[in-house]
Design a protein around this nucleic acid. Structure first.
Lengths: 203, 203, 203, 203
DNA sequence: AATGAATGAGCATTCATTCAT
DNA sequence: AATGAATGAATGCTCATTCAT
C-alpha cells in the first residue's frame, strides 16, 4: 500500500486510463464504476477519492484527452501559411492524427458513439455546441482571408463553405470511426480535402 | 368495452408516438417504459403486449419513422436525371426534408444524440454500418456514371468523392441538428452541395 | 404468487407490520428495507410498489398506528363530564392504554427513542410540534372551563397548568417506556394524575 | 511547527465543539466525521488521533457537557434547606438553567431529538436508565423526608410523586426544547413547579 | 386487450476506518 | 501531532420483465 503524493497522481491516472477502456467497452451509461475500479486495480472508493462521481470522471477524461488535438491545432495555426494552406493542413492533419493517435481515436469514439444525451452530462453538451460554433467562425474568417488574398473564389458564401468544411470533416471522421475498415483515412484524407478545396478555390 | 383490431392498432401507434417523445426527452438508456406508458395513456403491461421489450420498441420506432426518407430517396432516384442532377437533388432534398419534417428530424436526433452503444442495440448498429456502406457504393457508382457521361472530372478518386459526399451530408446534418439556430439548412443546402459538386465537376 | 386486489391490501399490511418490527429493532436510521422486506416475506421491490421510499413507509406507519389513540381521545371527549373529569380521564386512560395496547406502545417507542432528527423526516417533526401546541391549547381551555364552573382554582395560570399537564403526561410516558420495569403505569397512573389535579383544584 | 500539549488540548476541544455543532445539525446518525473535521478545521485523521471513533466522540462530548448541570445540582443540594425548598429549587433552577445555558440546551436537544437508539450507543442508553432511576430514588427520599418533617402530605404515594416530579420535569423540558417559542421557561418554571408542589404539600 | 402486483438483478454513492508518511 | 490516500462494507433505489387475472 502506497500513500505518497506521487502515488496519488499515479492512481488518478490509472483510474482515468481505466475509465477510457471501460467507457469504450460498455458505453458511458452502462459502464460500471466497479469495472473501472477493477481495471485500474483499485476499489470504487478510490474513484470517489479523486472524483465527485461518474460524470466527473467522464468530464476529466475528456478534458485531458482532448489536449493532444488542441496542441496539434495550435501548432498548425502558429506554423503559419496561406489561408488555403492552413485550412488544408488543419483538415488533413487532424484526420490523419485520428488514425495515428489511438488515444484521440478512442475519445472520439467515446463521444460520438458511446455517449448519448444524459441530463448529468448536459454541461458537456453545451460546451460542444459552443466550440463547434467557434470552429465554424474561425474557418469562416480563414476563408474570408483567402478570398482577400485571391486564393478563394470571391463569389462563395463563406459561412456556407465554413459549415461545409466542418461538416465534411466531422462527417468523414464519423464515417471512418464507424468502420475503419471501410477506408483508410491516411490514404483518402488529402483527396477528400482537395475535393472540398477545389470547390472553393479561385479558378 | 369492446376492443376491435382498430383499437389495437391505435394503441400500438400511441405507444410508438409516446416512445418517440420519451426517448427524445431522456435518451434511450434513461427512458423508462413507465414514462412511455404514461405518455401513451396506458400501463407498462400494454407495451409488453405489443413489443418484446424496450429494444424492440426502439427498433420498431426507427423502422417506421425512416420510411418517409426512404420513400423520398426512392422517388428522387426513379424521377431520373443526369448523375449530377440526381446526386445534387439527393443531397439537397434530404437536407431540406430534415428541416421540414418534424418526425424525421426527431428520429435523427434520437439516433445521433440520444442513443449510444449498447449491447442490446448491437444489431441496429451493424445495420447502420451496412447501409452506410451501401450508400457510399451507390454514390460511387453514380459518380462513375457521371464521369462516363462527361459530367464529372475523370481524374477524381470516385470512392474518395463518395465518402466525401456522404461525410459532408451527414456532417452538415449533424451540425444542424446539434443547433438548428446556428444556420438554416433550407438556406444553405444548395450552396453547400454546390461547393461539393463544383469540386468534382469536369472543368 | 397472488395478484388480486385483496392480496395487494394484505401485502401492504404485511409490509407495515414488518416495518413496525424492524424499525423498533434497529431504529429508523439503521433499519434496512431489506430486513423489512424479509420480515414481510416479500422483496424490496414490493415495498417500492406501495411506498415512495423509506420515509414514506415510516410516515404511513405512524399515521395508521396513531389512529387507535385518536379514537380513544375522541370517545373520552364525546363521553362528556365536568372539565376535571374529562382531564383526569384523558390523562389516566391514555397512560393505561399505553400499557395495554402493544401497538400503541411500539409506535411511541419508535417515535421517542428509535427515531432521531433527519432531514427526510422534517415534515413529520413539524406536524408533531403543531399537534403538541393544539393539545396544550385544548387543555388550557378545559382548565379555563373548570375555573368557570368552580372546579379549579381561579388563581392558577391556565397556560402554565396546561403545559404542566402535557409535560407531566409525556414525561411520565417517556419514563415508563424507557424502562417499564421501573413502575407499572396502570398502578401509578391515577396517583400521578391526582397529584397534578390536586395542585390545581379549587380548595 | 512545534506542537505543545496545549496545542493538542486546543485541537481536542475544537473537535468536540465542532461535534456539538455538527451532531445538532444533522443528528448523530447522519453526522459525518468529515463534517466535524471540517468544522474544526482539521482532517478526519486528527479525530482518530484523539478518539477511538464516532461513538467515542459522542460519549466524550456528553460527559463534558453534562458537567455544568451536575455541578448545579451538587451546589443546590449542598446549599441545604428543607426538603420542599430543595426539591423546588432543584426543579426550577435546572429548568431555568436550560434556557440560560446554551451549551446545556444543545446537549439536551442532541440527546432527546438528535440521537436515536443505535447498537453502538447501547452503553449510553443503559447509563441513562440507571441515572433516571437514581434520580427518582433521590426524590422519593426527599419527599419521604418532607413527610417526616411535616412539609408534605403523609397520604401521598412517595414513589408515584417522585415519578410525577421527574416526569413533569423532563416532559416540560422536552416540550420547551421542541419549540422554545411555545413558552418561556423562565417565566413559567415557578408556576409549573408550584402546581406540582401544591399537589403534595401538607394542607 | 390490458392491468397492476411482485420480482430481482443491478449500481452509484456514502463513510467510518486504517495506516504509511 | 496530523495528513490524506485508499479501503470496503453497507444500502437505498430504479426498472425491465413476468404473469395471474
Amino acid at each position: 500500500m502506497r500513500r505518497t503524493k506521487d502515488d496519488a497522481e499515479i492512481t488518478r491516472r490509472k483510474i482515468l486510463d481505466a475509465a477510457m477502456v471501460v467507457f469504450n467497452q460498455y458505453g458511458y451509461a452502462s459502464a460500471r464504476l466497479e469495472d473501472i475500479a477493477a481495471e485500474a486495480g483499485v476499489t470504487r472508493g478510490a474513484i470517489y477519492h479523486y472524483f465527485e462521481g461518474k460524470p466527473e470522471v467522464y468530464t476529466a477524461l475528456l478534458n485531458e484527452r482532448f489536449e493532444g488535438v488542441n496542441n496539434l491545432v495550435g501548432s498548425i495555426v502558429s506554423d503559419g501559411g496561406t489561408p488555403k494552406e492552413v485550412l488544408g493542413k488543419l483538415l488533413t492533419k487532424i484526420l490523419v492524427f485520428m488514425e495515428e493517435n489511438r488515444e484521440y481515436r478512442m475519445v472520439q469514439e467515446l463521444v460520438l458513439f458511446k455517449t448519448a444525451y444524459l441530463p448529468e452530462l448536459e454541461e458537456g453538451m453545451a460546451h460542444k455546441v459552443k466550440s463547434t460554433e467557434a470552429t465554424i467562425s474561425f474557418i469562416d474568417n480563414l476563408i474570408k482571408e483567402g478570398i482577400q488574398c485571391g486564393e478563394f473564389d470571391k463569389n462563395i458564401d463563406t459561412r456556407a463553405a465554413a459549415i461545409a468544411a466542418v461538416g465534411l470533416f466531422s462527417g468523414v471522421s464519423t464515417l471512418w470511426l464507424l468502420n475503419d475498415k471501410m477506408f483508410s483515412i491516411k490514404k483518402y484524407a488529402e483527396s477528400i480535402v482537395d475535393c472540398f478545396l477545389s470547390g472553393i478555390i479561385n479558378k
